[in-house]
Nucleic acid binder design. Sequence first.
DNA 1: GGTGATTACGTACGCTGTACGAGAAGGGTA
DNA 2: TACCCTTCTCGTACAGCGTACGTAATCACC
Lengths: 223, 223
Amino acid sequence: MMKDSGAGGRDRPALSREKVLQKALELADKDGIAALSIRSLAQSMGTKPMTLYYYVANKDQILDSLVDLVFTEIDTPEPGGDWKEQMRRRAHSAREVLRRHPWAVGLLESRKAPGPATLKHHEATLGALRAAGFTVQQTARAYSLLDSYIYGFALQEAALPTAGNKPMAEVAGPIMEQFATGEYPYMVEIATQVVMQPGYDYGNEFAYGLELILDALEPAPAG
Amino acid sequence: MMKDSGAGGRDRPALSREKVLQKALELADKDGIAALSIRSLAQSMGTKPMTLYYYVANKDQILDSLVDLVFTEIDTPEPGGDWKEQMRRRAHSAREVLRRHPWAVGLLESRKAPGPATLKHHEATLGALRAAGFTVQQTARAYSLLDSYIYGFALQEAALPTAGNKPMAEVAGPIMEQFATGEYPYMVEIATQVVMQPGYDYGNEFAYGLELILDALEPAPAG
DNA sequence: GGTGATTACGTACGCTGTACGAGAAGGGTA
DNA sequence: TACCCTTCTCGTACAGCGTACGTAATCACC
């Protein structure tokens, strides 16, 4: 029996590890990480589940690779230039990337094997801080602080019910009606005076905290 | 046919929603959230899978409840007292709780229905900031900043390979050997001069960032 | 005795990841 | 031509998952 472009070393590979991962990323973005199954991935690529295992060891490796793929999208500091501007660019880039791939935030907790892009990113960032005059200890602390803020903000942003791009006011309104009991006056206050204001975008708050942190960080003298 | 303490309203209920959730929490802590299945949960309680559905709507509700259960463990600010001290206590408490339940951090991303303990906690914290003289806008920003840092730090801590309580040096050593290539000099630097130092505990870095943020936060004048 | 509420669970369905092994197609060598 | 070896695809099967549905046992009360 023959196949149209069946098995064996046919014309062009058509499939590849990269294409599998690319499609996995696409699927995770479209339907959420929970909907990413080996079967759904295979179907979306026009092949069968077991075929994927030729290119990938198991699903865990796919998830590891997805996290690394996400890291490739984040701006990496380049040598030279003001360290604050470098960190600012990196932070904003990371936040944007994690907003595009919200599922990646939750994945960070369970992944223990950093990929090459992740390592390169860390290395470049550490290098930028060291070059700016931070001691090794200061670098460790500054990096931990910055990344905690970035990941934490991304985590909160991912947990927001703003699935679509609709303004916050539309989704927050119905929720707030539950609070008519008056049991949560401060939350209602925040909701009505901040969150539901026209044009409000939680993402804009990111810059506030980031600048506050950058202002407080300084290399050299103090340990 | 008769059962020893079978079905129906026998002596005492033996099972209850609270006991189910309590056991679920226990199981998640012991074997990780991935190992928490309806079947394993039922078995650990000496009952059958479908029995749990009398006390719980579905697994998603269990996860929602677990997150809320975790929030009950976090110190809630009480009226009166210095706001910085209140925020400091809350932050350290939250970090400790999230270290005890690392799986909860990853769950935060996917849970969209905050439970009563979560709401009470938020309400109390917002109240403490408002009482300290923060405007509504300042409160929103300060809260976002603090929680981002707390969750982000917890996320990074959860991602660390220090599964047991063994010192960092023991686990970091073997990993660092991969870096003998010299491709990642700055990471090696951090590892050897900071992480692998005897007595080093990443958790202690939490206070550094927290104090830096608290020092930079101030109510009233500036918007 | 009958009835209804409460609690427990047996069976079954569709989904998951993936171990195992069969096979098809091409290149290389004899 | 005949053979094999590598590369790639996929069928089958299994254990585990969440849970819909239906059944049955026990008690309280009429």
